[in-house]
Amino acid sequence: MTDIALIVNGENKTVSVPPETTLLKMLRENLNYTGSKLGCDVGDCGACTVLVDGLAVNACLILAAQAEGKEVLTIEGLSTLEKYHPIQKAFEDVAALQCGFCGPGMIMATKALIDQDQDLTKQEIKDALSGNLCRCTGYTKIIEGVVDAYQEITGKKIPATKPRVA
């Protein structure tokens, strides 16, 4: 067993897990944060995306022990009892989640992107989310949700892409 101390969603935690436990397994099974999903276990789908010290990470690919002393943010840590997080709200409003299994990962990847505080284009949003797969929506609504959330949070505007035929 390995002892790990870390911060999850702003709370200090200590956990004791077998050394081969991934961060995802530990979050889901030891700490009960089941919002992050296991889609593939090999880093292909992004359903397990969480933020570790502010960076988007596939939680299925890193060991729990590697998060020692780090600050982890999961989907459960976004909204508070007082405030609905703008990304979650935007995703709800544009119906960006159908079965919703990709949702928590998508939203966390979006948070990491918006937190970088850069000027974004639609294409850059698509590139940044390319590690997150969704089988239901066809991505259109998800990108719409990200654009809305980005504009809401940063106050910046994303230029609308021109339709192919005028």
Binding site: T74, I75, S79, Q88, K89, D93, A95, L97, G100
Partner: peptide, 13 residues
Amino acid sequence: RATRPDGRMHGLG
């Protein structure tokens, strides 16, 4: 525009 009744739960994880 349409939205889903369960969308909020999904988004909140």
